[in-house]
Design a protein around this nucleic acid. Structure first.
Lengths: 123, 123
DNA sequence: TCAGGTCCTGGCCACCCGGCCAGTTTCGCA
DNA sequence: TGCGAAACTGGCCGGGTGGCCAGGACCTGA
């Protein structure tokens, strides 16, 4: 432990782009109070690449579709979603259908995976 | 843009812990060649918290279960999984059942979400 | 040798899912 | 004053899903 009350923050890097990784490592390596993690070491935080191509533009989902999507991601069935949102199963299926369409998915599992991939929802 | 040939790297922070976020922001804000993203701004990389509680110990999944899980995450139906793995639909359902059990999930969508959450699979 | 785990397969069945058709209301925008 | 988008509801139906039963083959370690 260091003498002062602020211990080092350990940062790990997860950057695919070698050039960016090098520059970040060089910059961050010289910051006092901050240290880059050794391989395998547990880090307090991680720097990950923000890949711009993931979100060309966010998919236009309505509020209701987002509600349904969130519950789908929790494994809720159409019936459970209907109960929670206070709407009929038919309406849920309507929204699910729109989601499958907009997310280009073949089923609800695929829809949740796609949405998570492009950051529409957080797992 | 700056005079030299190395443009600033824009970093965004996604840290729940306010103390850690503050310290990181203070440290990173003073690094030459690096800048923190303004709200809504597109960043080249993101600093995220490394949450240790995510993997207490990995769930013991057999190789076959991992095969099935990976295909499930792609939205494949039992029939498609069966064709791809060269086994019967019954066997797929058997493995899916084991996965639901081990992952404590109520359905295949929930199973994929759980698996992704604890890092068993990558979306 | 024998128990236990993994992997595989089959049948049966209630239920769920997704796609199709149809319709209504409400709201904001042109 | 339309007109479209969003939200909501209904019926119908083929196919998918998950839970239950049963069995056999293979390998490993006790």
């Amino acid at each position: 432990m260091s003498a002062d009350n602020a211990p080092e923050i350990v940062l790990s890097l997860e950057i695919d782009d070698p050039a960016l990784a090098d520059r970040l490592a060089a910059l961050l390596g010289n910051v006092a109070g901050l240290r880059l993690a050794k391989p395998g070491e547990q880090a307090a935080a991680t720097v990950v690449a923000r890949d711009p191509r993931i979100m060309p533009e966010d998919i236009a989902l309505t509020q209701r579709e987002l509600d349904v999507l969130a519950l789908m991601a929790e494994g809720a069935s159409n019936k459970m979603i209907a109960r929670r949102l206070g709407i009929s199963v038919h309406t849920v299926k309507f929204h699910v259908g729109s989601l499958l369409d907009k997310l280009d998915a073949t089923g609800r599992t695929d829809a949740v995976a796609h949405a998570a991939r492009r950051g529409v929802i957080e797992l």
